Deep mutational scan, measured.
Amino acid sequence: TYTWNTKEEAKQAFKELLKEKRVPSNASWEQAMKMIINDPRYSALAKLSEKKQAFNAYKVQTE
């Protein structure tokens, strides 16, 4: 089980997950979700809006 003390740690864990699963920077949210949804870190960020925000930040960083 994973635990995160801060929102920032949770966001980092979520981005690490995207990186580890090699989600391409041109992937849509739907494509990315299919690649990461079974990992416990997918739940790091509770709100869908937070997940999408972190995903978009990840995409910008990896382009």
Results as ranks from 00 to 15, higher is better:
residue 49 S to E: 12
residue 48 L to D: 08
residue 46 A to Y: 09
residue 40 P to A: 07
residue 55 F to N: 02
residue 27 A to E: 04
residue 37 I to T: 07
residue 62 T to A: 14
residue 52 K to N: 04
residue 12 Q to T: 11
residue 6 T to A: 02
residue 10 A to T: 03
residue 50 E to M: 04
residue 38 N to G: 11
residue 60 V to D: 07
residue 46 A to R: 10
residue 7 K to Y: 11
residue 56 N to P: 04
residue 14 F to G: 00
residue 10 A to H: 03
residue 15 K to I: 14
residue 48 L to Y: 07
residue 25 S to L: 14
residue 46 A to Q: 14
residue 49 S to W: 10
residue 36 I to V: 05
residue 9 E to C: 07
residue 14 F to H: 00
residue 53 Q to S: 11
residue 30 E to C: 11
residue 36 I to H: 00
residue 33 M to G: 03
residue 11 K to W: 15
residue 11 K to P: 03
residue 48 L to W: 06
residue 62 T to K: 09
residue 4 W to L: 02
residue 53 Q to E: 14
residue 23 V to M: 03
residue 29 W to C: 03
residue 34 K to N: 14
residue 59 K to D: 04
residue 7 K to R: 06
residue 7 K to P: 15
residue 4 W to R: 04
residue 9 E to H: 03
residue 43 S to W: 11
residue 16 E to A: 12
residue 26 N to E: 10
residue 31 Q to A: 09
residue 2 Y to F: 13
residue 41 R to G: 02
residue 57 A to N: 11
residue 24 P to M: 04
residue 17 L to C: 09
residue 43 S to N: 14
residue 46 A to F: 07
residue 2 Y to A: 13
residue 32 A to T: 06
residue 58 Y to K: 01
residue 44 A to T: 03
residue 17 L to A: 12
residue 34 K to E: 13
residue 25 S to N: 11
residue 17 L to T: 01
residue 47 K to M: 12
residue 9 E to G: 04
residue 4 W to F: 05
residue 62 T to S: 14
residue 54 A to S: 08
residue 21 K to W: 05
residue 42 Y to I: 02
residue 60 V to H: 14
residue 51 K to I: 04
residue 5 N to T: 11
residue 44 A to D: 02
residue 39 D to K: 00
residue 16 E to L: 07
residue 55 F to W: 10
residue 45 L to V: 05
residue 62 T to D: 09
residue 6 T to K: 02
residue 43 S to D: 13
residue 43 S to A: 12
residue 40 P to L: 09
residue 56 N to H: 13
residue 59 K to E: 04
residue 22 R to M: 13
residue 8 E to Q: 08
residue 30 E to R: 09
residue 22 R to V: 09
residue 30 E to G: 10
residue 24 P to D: 05
residue 38 N to V: 07
residue 5 N to F: 13
residue 27 A to Q: 04
residue 37 I to F: 14
residue 49 S to Y: 06
residue 10 A to R: 14
residue 3 T to V: 10
residue 16 E to I: 05
residue 61 Q to E: 13
residue 23 V to N: 00
residue 5 N to H: 09
residue 63 E to L: 09
residue 4 W to K: 09
residue 24 P to A: 09
residue 24 P to V: 02
residue 35 M to S: 05
residue 27 A to S: 11
residue 41 R to H: 02
residue 17 L to D: 00
residue 28 S to L: 07
residue 37 I to A: 11
residue 22 R to I: 06
residue 30 E to P: 12
residue 5 N to Y: 13
residue 60 V to Q: 14
residue 31 Q to T: 14
residue 16 E to V: 04
residue 20 E to M: 05
residue 25 S to M: 13
residue 51 K to P: 03
residue 30 E to D: 09
residue 20 E to R: 03
residue 46 A to D: 12
residue 43 S to M: 12
residue 19 K to P: 00
residue 42 Y to K: 01
residue 9 E to A: 04
residue 42 Y to T: 01
residue 4 W to A: 06
residue 33 M to L: 11
residue 48 L to Q: 07
residue 6 T to F: 03
residue 18 L to Y: 00
residue 57 A to T: 12
residue 6 T to R: 01
residue 51 K to A: 04
residue 15 K to Q: 14
residue 28 S to H: 09
residue 53 Q to M: 11
residue 37 I to L: 10
residue 41 R to T: 03
residue 4 W to S: 08
residue 36 I to A: 02
residue 26 N to F: 09
residue 8 E to D: 07
residue 2 Y to G: 15
residue 18 L to N: 00
residue 33 M to V: 11
residue 43 S to I: 08
residue 2 Y to K: 15
residue 41 R to L: 02
residue 30 E to H: 11
residue 51 K to G: 02
residue 34 K to T: 11
residue 37 I to S: 08
residue 50 E to C: 06
residue 50 E to P: 01
residue 48 L to E: 14
residue 37 I to W: 11
residue 53 Q to P: 02
residue 54 A to K: 01
residue 11 K to H: 15
residue 18 L to M: 07
residue 38 N to K: 10
residue 44 A to P: 01
residue 44 A to M: 04
residue 39 D to H: 01
residue 24 P to Y: 04
residue 36 I to K: 00
residue 46 A to T: 14
residue 13 A to I: 06
residue 43 S to R: 09
residue 23 V to F: 03
residue 48 L to G: 05
residue 5 N to G: 11
residue 28 S to M: 07
residue 29 W to I: 02
residue 53 Q to C: 13
residue 10 A to F: 03
residue 16 E to H: 07
residue 23 V to I: 09
residue 21 K to A: 08
residue 40 P to Y: 15
residue 7 K to H: 11
residue 7 K to E: 14
residue 53 Q to R: 11
residue 2 Y to N: 15
residue 33 M to K: 14
residue 11 K to S: 15
residue 61 Q to S: 08
residue 46 A to P: 14
residue 28 S to A: 06
residue 39 D to N: 01
residue 61 Q to N: 12
residue 1 T to E: 15
residue 45 L to E: 01
residue 38 N to T: 10
residue 35 M to K: 07
residue 22 R to F: 07
residue 49 S to T: 11
residue 54 A to T: 09
residue 23 V to P: 04
residue 10 A to K: 08
residue 62 T to G: 10
residue 49 S to P: 06
residue 13 A to S: 07
residue 19 K to G: 11
residue 33 M to R: 12
residue 19 K to W: 15
residue 59 K to T: 08
residue 11 K to T: 15
residue 50 E to H: 05
residue 22 R to A: 09
residue 28 S to R: 07
residue 57 A to Y: 10
residue 2 Y to R: 14
residue 9 E to Q: 05
residue 11 K to Q: 15
residue 33 M to D: 05
residue 4 W to C: 15
residue 40 P to E: 07
residue 29 W to G: 00
residue 60 V to N: 14
residue 45 L to H: 01
residue 12 Q to C: 14
residue 22 R to L: 13
residue 60 V to A: 12
residue 42 Y to E: 01
residue 20 E to Q: 08
residue 61 Q to I: 10
residue 18 L to K: 00
residue 49 S to F: 04
residue 44 A to F: 04
residue 57 A to S: 10
residue 48 L to T: 10
residue 42 Y to Q: 01
residue 22 R to Q: 13
residue 63 E to D: 12
residue 63 E to R: 13
residue 15 K to P: 00
residue 13 A to E: 04
residue 24 P to L: 04
residue 34 K to W: 09
residue 17 L to N: 00
residue 57 A to D: 13
residue 33 M to T: 07
residue 41 R to F: 01
residue 57 A to C: 14
residue 13 A to N: 05
residue 52 K to D: 03
residue 22 R to H: 12
residue 60 V to E: 08
residue 26 N to Y: 11
residue 9 E to F: 03
residue 5 N to M: 10
residue 27 A to M: 08
residue 55 F to E: 03
residue 10 A to L: 04
residue 55 F to H: 03
residue 18 L to S: 00
residue 57 A to Q: 13
residue 29 W to M: 03
residue 37 I to V: 11
residue 60 V to K: 14
residue 14 F to K: 00
residue 19 K to R: 12
residue 58 Y to V: 02
residue 14 F to E: 00
residue 30 E to N: 11
residue 63 E to W: 05
residue 4 W to H: 06
residue 47 K to S: 13
residue 1 T to N: 15
residue 28 S to K: 08
residue 47 K to H: 11
residue 40 P to R: 06
residue 50 E to I: 03
residue 37 I to Y: 11
residue 5 N to S: 11
residue 18 L to W: 01
residue 21 K to P: 01
residue 1 T to I: 15
residue 8 E to M: 06
residue 50 E to L: 03
residue 47 K to R: 08
residue 11 K to I: 15
residue 1 T to P: 15
residue 8 E to K: 06
residue 8 E to P: 04
residue 53 Q to H: 10
residue 32 A to E: 00
residue 43 S to K: 13
residue 12 Q to E: 14
residue 22 R to Y: 09
residue 36 I to R: 00
residue 53 Q to N: 09
residue 1 T to A: 15
residue 19 K to T: 14
residue 49 S to N: 06
residue 25 S to P: 12
residue 32 A to W: 02
residue 21 K to D: 01
residue 39 D to S: 02
residue 39 D to I: 01
residue 3 T to I: 14
residue 1 T to H: 15
residue 46 A to L: 09
residue 54 A to L: 06
residue 55 F to L: 11
residue 21 K to E: 04
residue 44 A to E: 03
residue 14 F to V: 01
residue 8 E to G: 08
residue 5 N to V: 13
residue 36 I to E: 00
residue 24 P to R: 05
residue 14 F to T: 00
residue 59 K to G: 05
residue 54 A to N: 03
residue 1 T to C: 15
residue 16 E to S: 08
residue 54 A to P: 01
residue 21 K to S: 08
residue 12 Q to Y: 06
residue 35 M to E: 06
residue 62 T to W: 08
residue 30 E to I: 09
residue 47 K to T: 14
residue 63 E to G: 09
residue 20 E to H: 06
residue 2 Y to W: 11
residue 47 K to V: 10
residue 47 K to E: 14
residue 8 E to N: 06
residue 29 W to F: 10
residue 54 A to D: 02
residue 56 N to C: 14
residue 30 E to V: 08
residue 1 T to L: 07
residue 23 V to T: 03
residue 34 K to I: 11
residue 61 Q to T: 12
residue 4 W to M: 04
residue 4 W to E: 14
residue 45 L to N: 01
residue 62 T to V: 13
residue 25 S to Y: 11
residue 25 S to A: 13
residue 52 K to A: 03
residue 17 L to R: 00
residue 23 V to W: 01
residue 37 I to N: 12
residue 30 E to M: 08
residue 46 A to H: 11
residue 8 E to S: 07
residue 59 K to L: 09
residue 58 Y to N: 04
residue 13 A to P: 01
residue 49 S to A: 10
residue 36 I to N: 00
residue 32 A to Y: 02
residue 1 T to Y: 14
residue 44 A to I: 04
residue 45 L to A: 02
residue 31 Q to K: 06
residue 20 E to F: 06
residue 19 K to Y: 14
residue 32 A to G: 05
residue 40 P to H: 09
residue 21 K to T: 07
residue 28 S to D: 08
residue 1 T to R: 15
residue 53 Q to L: 10
residue 42 Y to L: 02
residue 21 K to V: 07
residue 19 K to E: 15
residue 51 K to T: 02
residue 5 N to R: 05
residue 56 N to Q: 12
residue 57 A to V: 10
residue 13 A to C: 12
residue 33 M to S: 09
residue 59 K to Q: 10
residue 12 Q to L: 10
residue 61 Q to F: 13
residue 35 M to Q: 06
residue 10 A to C: 09
residue 52 K to P: 00
residue 41 R to V: 03
residue 7 K to M: 10
residue 59 K to I: 14
residue 58 Y to D: 04
residue 35 M to F: 07
residue 44 A to W: 03
residue 29 W to K: 01
residue 48 L to N: 08
